[in-house]
Amino acid sequence: MARALIHMPATARRGEIIEIRALIGHPMETGYRPGADGKLIPRDIIRKFVCRYNGEQIFGAELHQAVSANPYISFFTIATETGTLEFAWEGDNGFAQTEKMNLTVAPA
């Protein structure tokens, strides 16, 4: 399991714009780089990132070989209601990881 770091506020006011930052530890091998033996290191990348807020997708990204190791993604959303944000990464070789964070929304 890869190490994921997610930074977002635990609380917000209804209608407030919040920043969400997610980083996951992953080598992101392109499949083009030779190893010490001269043979190409097999491709191993994260291909997809999705964030859902109470089950509704609010952000998604497709990643490709040009993305560096340990991909960092930052985006904004509007706090509408108390709930759970679910972060999901999918990649080559069956890689899949999901993390959840709670957000408490107070009246405006």
Results as ranks from 00 to 15, higher is better:
A96T: 09
A79C: 08
T84R: 12
A2W: 02
K39V: 00
G35F: 07
S68H: 00
M1H: 10
A79H: 05
M101L: 09
T84Q: 12
T98E: 14
T82F: 08
G38V: 03
V50A: 07
M28T: 06
N70M: 02
A22P: 01
N54E: 13
W89I: 01
A2I: 00
I45N: 00
K39L: 04
E16F: 02
E90W: 14
I73V: 02
A2M: 01
I41R: 15
A66Q: 07
F76H: 13
Q57L: 01
Y32W: 06
V105Y: 06
G94K: 08
D44W: 01
R43K: 11
A2D: 07
F75S: 07
W89R: 04
T84P: 00
M101Y: 07
Q65I: 02
N70E: 01
K39M: 07
R43Y: 05
A36W: 05
T82V: 03
S74P: 07
Y72R: 14
P71Y: 01
H64G: 08
A108G: 02
I73A: 05
E16Y: 08
G55I: 06
I58F: 06
I24W: 04
D92T: 13
I73R: 06
G83L: 04
T80M: 10
A10V: 07
I73E: 01
R52P: 01
L23T: 13
G60K: 09
P34C: 13
T80E: 14
Y32L: 06
A10E: 12
P107S: 07
T11W: 04
E99Q: 12
N93V: 10
I18Q: 00
F59C: 09
T77P: 00
R47E: 10
I73S: 01
T82W: 10
E81Y: 09
H64C: 03
L85T: 02
G91S: 04
P27Y: 05
K100W: 02
G83T: 09
I18G: 05
P34N: 10
